[in-house]
């Protein structure tokens, strides 16, 4: 049961490559701890995006979460991160 509830998260390599590719200077590096924390940060970001969209869909009585639901919650989401 516990194995099924295993948390879905971004891969370490994905996060570190993603961030490293956006650094302006080549010598900027990412520590292991920072990578782990950024994985969590991105997971929370996606979870918030999904949950807020879902709540929006719920309040409009829709069974499927559509892009307009996400559009409605997007401005506040970006302000919170």
């Amino acid at each position: 049961m516990a194995a099924k509830e295993e948390e879905i998260c971004f891969k370490k390599e994905t996060v570190s490559k993603l961030l490293s590719s956006s650094f302006k200077e080549d010598k900027t590096k990412l520590s292991g701890d920072a990578t782990q924390l950024m994985r969590e940060m991105l997971r929370v970001f996606v979870q918030e995006a999904a949950l807020r969209s879902l709540k929006q869909a719920e309040s409009e009585d829709c069974n499927q979460v559509e892009i307009e639901h996400f559009e409605k919650i997007l401005p506040q989401l970006l302000l919170d991160f």
């Binding site: 979460v65 559509e66 892009i67 639901h69 996400f70 559009e71």
Partner: peptide, 10 residues
């Protein structure tokens, strides 16, 4: 509930 493919992509 289900997420549309567009939403996931967005």
């Amino acid at each position: 509930r289900e997420f549309s493919r567009q939403t996931v992509a967005a």
